[in-house]
Design a protein around this nucleic acid. Structure first.
Length: 473
RNA sequence: GGCCCCAUCGUCUAGCGGUUAGGACACCGGCCUCUCACGCCGGUAACGGGAGUUCGAUUCUCCCUGGGGUCACCA
């Protein structure tokens, strides 16, 4: 009989949910799902001045977008105050914590001074054994850390990690304003929620001995810990705003598929042989800590792009249509109230998807199709809509008018005839036509473009192109 | 600086004492070709250094070096 697994993701709502946070959430989610356990979402908002409702909503939308569903929560710590207050009273009553009357200013000064002496900045224990309490002075509550001895933290990924108690100081459990602090609430909550495995970034490893001591003091059993590695930027520094878009929802707006992002993040620090692409079910099925790596991983945007391309190729037309529509609006190719049917939105997708790494790119490439009036790239027009090319366009135009059925085969026949008659290579015709129809020198195959635009729009653009003259020639 | 963690191609990684050190992204060639892509074929590229243990170390141990994290009335 084993205890069912219960894990949590506990972000602090002091900014948007970044990629590193998502990966922590993902590993928790994967572990919960693979073990048939529960996944809890808990908002750590005890820092009242920095927490925002906006961040909470952002975190929730990002989790939903990525399909990381939770079984309990979102809990908010500021709604659980009684729980922490009771635990503080208990620590105080059992003399495992004490009131400290030192002012923040005084402590800052001492810390600064210690740093200058190159000594360890550590609380000096002034109030640890105070005989009588000064009247009416504001106080914090500090946890009494044993002066000597060691704490050993058991970590699923790193084995036993031992810290000297001497390295730890009497950390604050409750602030002057009565709000509790992280190293304390995290323990109370994880214990009360019966979290069995604490899976988090390894930036928390150095906090763990304090928390381990807190579990012991409160009489709670310690959970299993698993500290996963951090994600670094290309410069090997921890991923931050400097490394471009770190807001998870920004990836949605850039046209990434949630499954692709999830797959990429899962492979960052986890592997299953040589496999690169996993369905969610496969990830859940294969996930385990034995194949999680402990060293930090550099975030590689190119590989994410490649994966996204793979996912685009395999996504259903329906999925792509929905995504493309929102990106077309987001990129202002179409207005909100465009009135287009799903079929119309879907039409260019088959010829665009193999050359799109993101849906945003797809939207940009679809521009020539969705806009009534195209803008001819100045350089492209100058180079290809020349006086020698225009007669060819004219000829194509009249040939097209005579075609009663436009198919790839009839188009190819028409193009070949014109090319043979003029004794030129296909490219000499195709490029000017391409510029005329799309405004650019790069596009899907020219027959596909004509087929997509249809006879009327093709003829219109051809005649516009024949009238084209470079403005700054 | 103290403490803690980490170390295979540029990047993500496989490897769990004996391998021509494998795969993927990126990069470089070639093929395909109406442009751009896709695709296909091929190539360059790694065990940070030094001591041990062992018949044998990428693999185990220690040291060095390097990188990262952390030292708040932030989480």
């Amino acid at each position: 009989m084993t205890i069912p697994v219960k894990v949590r993701f506990a972000p602090s709502p002091t900014g948007y949910l970044h990629i590193g946070g998502v990966r922590t959430a993902l590993f928790n989610w994967l572990f919960a799902r693979s073990m048939g356990g529960k996944f809890v979402l808990r908002i750590e908002d005890t820092d009242v001045s920095r927490s925002t409702e906006e961040s909470i909503q952002e975190i929730i939308s990002a989790m939903k977008w990525l399909g990381l569903d939770w079984d309990e929560g979102p809990y908010r710590q500021m709604e659980r105050r009684e729980l922490y207050d009771r635990a503080v009273e208990k620590l105080l009553a059992e003399k495992k914590a004490y009131r400290c009357y030192c002012s923040a200013e005084m402590l800052d000064a001492k810390r600064k001074e210690a740093l200058e002496r190159k000594a360890k900045p550590k609380y000096d224990g002034t109030c640890r054994n105070l005989a009588s309490a000064p009247d009416g002075t504001p106080f914090v509550v500090r946890f009494k850390v044993p002066a000597e001895g060691k704490v050993t933290v058991k970590d699923l990924l790193r084995g036993n990690v031992t810290f000297d108690n001497e390295e730890l100081d009497d950390f604050i459990v409750q602030r002057t304003d009565g709000t509790p602090t992280y190293n304390f609430v995290v323990v109370v909550d994880d214990a009360e929620m019966e979290i069995t495995h604490v899976i988090r970034g390894d930036d928390h490893l150095s906090n763990t001995p304090r928390q381990a001591l807190m579990y012991d003091a409160l009489g709670y059993p310690r959970p299993q810990f698993a500290h996963i590695s951090m994600i670094l930027g290309t410069d090997k520094a921890r991923l931050s705003k400097r490394h471009g878009a770190t807001s998870t929802l920004a990836y949605r707006d850039m046209g990434y598929l949630p499954d692709a992002l999830i797959n990429y993040l899962a492979r960052l620090g986890w592997s299953h042989g040589d496999q690169e692409i996993f369905t969610r079910d496969e990830m859940v099925q294969f996930f385990n800590f034995d194949s999680v790596s402990v060293s930090a991983a550099v975030f590689n945007p190119e590989k994410l792009l490649w994966l996204n391309h793979q996912y685009i190729q395999n996504a259903s037309l329906e999925t792509l249509t929905t995504l493309l529509e929102s990106l077309l609006i987001h990129e202002k190719v179409l207005p909100d109230n465009h009135g287009k049917t799903q079929e119309e939105i879907a039409r260019p997708i088959p010829i665009l998807k193999e050359r799109s790494q993101t849906i945003k790119e797809m939207a940009e490439k679809a521009d020539f199709y969705f806009r009534e009036e195209i803008e001819i790239d100045e350089k492209a027009g100058k180079k290809f809509l020349t006086e020698t090319a225009k007669p060819l366009l004219l000829e194509l135009s009249s040939g097209l008018q005579d075609l009663n059925e436009i198919t790839e085969a009839t188009l190819e026949k028409l193009f070949k005839e014109i090319v043979e008659k003029a004794d030129i290579k296909l490219g000499k015709l195709a490029q000017p036509v391409r510029v005329a129809l799309t405004g650019n020198t790069a596009s899907p195959g020219i027959y596909d473009v004509v087929l997509l635009l249809g006879k009327e729009r093709t003829l219109k653009r051809l005649s516009d192109a024949i009238k084209f003259s470079p403005s700054n020639a």
